[in-house]
Design a binder for these strands. Sequence first.
DNA 1: GATGAATGAGGGTTCATTCAT
DNA 2: TATGAATGAACCCTCATTCAT
Lengths: 205, 205, 205, 205
Amino acid sequence: MPTEDSSSANAPKRERGRLRVAAIIKAAVEIFAEKGYDVATMTEIAARSGTAIGSLYRFFPSKEALADALLLQYAQHVKHALTELEQQVPHMKPDSVADALVDFMLALQSQRSFAVSLIDARGLEANERKRFREMMRGAIADIVRKTIPGVTPAKARVMAVVLLLMLKGLSGAMSEEPAARAMLIAEMRELVRMYLASAAGRKRA
Amino acid sequence: MPTEDSSSANAPKRERGRLRVAAIIKAAVEIFAEKGYDVATMTEIAARSGTAIGSLYRFFPSKEALADALLLQYAQHVKHALTELEQQVPHMKPDSVADALVDFMLALQSQRSFAVSLIDARGLEANERKRFREMMRGAIADIVRKTIPGVTPAKARVMAVVLLLMLKGLSGAMSEEPAARAMLIAEMRELVRMYLASAAGRKRA
Amino acid sequence: MPTEDSSSANAPKRERGRLRVAAIIKAAVEIFAEKGYDVATMTEIAARSGTAIGSLYRFFPSKEALADALLLQYAQHVKHALTELEQQVPHMKPDSVADALVDFMLALQSQRSFAVSLIDARGLEANERKRFREMMRGAIADIVRKTIPGVTPAKARVMAVVLLLMLKGLSGAMSEEPAARAMLIAEMRELVRMYLASAAGRKRA
Amino acid sequence: MPTEDSSSANAPKRERGRLRVAAIIKAAVEIFAEKGYDVATMTEIAARSGTAIGSLYRFFPSKEALADALLLQYAQHVKHALTELEQQVPHMKPDSVADALVDFMLALQSQRSFAVSLIDARGLEANERKRFREMMRGAIADIVRKTIPGVTPAKARVMAVVLLLMLKGLSGAMSEEPAARAMLIAEMRELVRMYLASAAGRKRA
DNA sequence: GATGAATGAGGGTTCATTCAT
DNA sequence: TATGAATGAACCCTCATTCAT
């Protein structure tokens, strides 16, 4: 679900353009995910999306701009999902929150690896990366604070970083064979539950 | 530091070659770590190691071969360290093993980022990556089995994957500011302890 | 400013077209002058003139055609001015003619640099350039012949070429700082006067 | 006669390289002269000089660097010639100096048009252009001062600018047909003599 | 064996021009 | 007719790799 207004310099004005942009984004996400930012080529992105190279550059004036747009879109998507989750938290038990976090990450997987490849790319501004990480941490910390009412903001932030770190690892899990994957996911689910529970316990104790 | 083999007439040459290779490897590790596999250039590696580009290619016939060699060396280093740890395990309490695992990862950090950059590089054969991962998992699983005597091999493997995943995250922690880093490490240490302890408990229960 | 021909139903359209063409020509003159023929882009000319690129191509079927049109217009302008000057010559003293020539060049300066950039552009047909030069030389030669009645046509032509050459240099003078520019212009004025006077003298002698 | 140390970033170290650079410079001068800086392509320069594109870039790391090197070489050549002329001046009559200046310009013609095309190119730093112009003006002004001993420095400078301007025009003369060219040159020679003589006269008077 | 000049495929990007809407 | 999205040849430049010296 691409946003109607991405950060591309030249937003398309006709319906056809909208479709083209969607095709480009799809191809770019795939190729960045497959090869990483540096190895991906604009030529291949154009080819896979059925776009002439010149058209690709009409919508995204540089490779970096394309990556930025993709990242922004991804960030907005993630932010939205986390905000929704946050609003559910008051009605959930910690274990359910833990499960929701794992599910959230799992749901993101398909798009995730491309984001990682872009975030790690050396070409991107450190700022861009930092803002994205900050957003994620803040959102997760908020969820932690609602899940474990008494935690200090500082503790919530540390926990957010740790959670993110665990969840991030989940993406690697997707490349396992199905059987191993299921076990891995179950184990991770257990770990996250335990982590939240223990924190809640430490709090109360 | 003379080589252990100095009896032949070729010794000086061999010695020079060895130094040269060491210089190349040092430069390559640095540059791969700084820029990632794709962005690093053979020319720069040659320059930083004070080697002519032609000589670099004499020792490592391609960029990929160089990366493979680096990875192999890194893998051996890691394997060695884990084997040593494994031998200590029988005399340690689970918490100490947990700490040792965290320390092990921390100790690896300096060399780590280059390895990640190589492992993630798309250019490398999946096989290469797989073997490396397999080795790590096997070694950690062995440690787990010695730490928690009753676990099934399958369970130990799953735990190894999860542990690796957590520890892997630690590398990201190194880019935090010192204060945040210390907290993060403490938290991770706690998590790993808890994870091993709970597994031991589940086992015994 | 209504067109002189407003009797047809197409008048409004024609009127719009005329304005459009005027806007394009204005923008094109500016941009060619600023950047030179090769670096100027049709897209920018379209943008600055508020014209869609497709419309620009409707009026001028190629970049070269646009340049030709500009050059033609400039040539007509120059020709007209020189013809007017020629008619004044019989009533002027040689020094006044010299001054008039310098003033003429100075008056042209604002539009001049674009013309130079077009005339020098390698893309233009040599023919086009030749015709333009021929026109200028002929017109100046005519003025010379009226200024110095006895000169042979051949001599007048040579003088025209030399005069043109001097006057052409004046355009470079416009980029000097004001103080230097004023001195330069005075000096050139003197030179041109001297040149005409000496030719007249040689003639008579 | 290429200088032994041009401004190229990577000076060749072997004899073969020296030849290659000479070939590149020759081709570049020709092509820049034929088409101008913007239209000239590195690919064509490489092809005409029998060099692989990669090799061209080894010696001149960018198109601009190549142009700068050419310009620098040309400037040094010109400076040298003018310095030599200046030393002859004390032994010459003004008319001879005038002739020498015209001859100097004529001798430069073959290389001249490329320099003009580079100096006028928009891509070059204004500084580079300014320095070149300054050098020329200074050198000519020095010659003027030695030719007409009493002139003020300021007057000499103005005259230098005017002379340069006239001489510059001579390059255009080279594209005339032989007959016209000879007349033109004779006329220019006369003009320059007259100019110097009149200045000397004004001085003395 | 060591050296570094040479090679050329391929990458990001631009822009004159066309044509469907 | 007016519009601007689409096209793709061509540009400048990089770099892994080879090979003559």
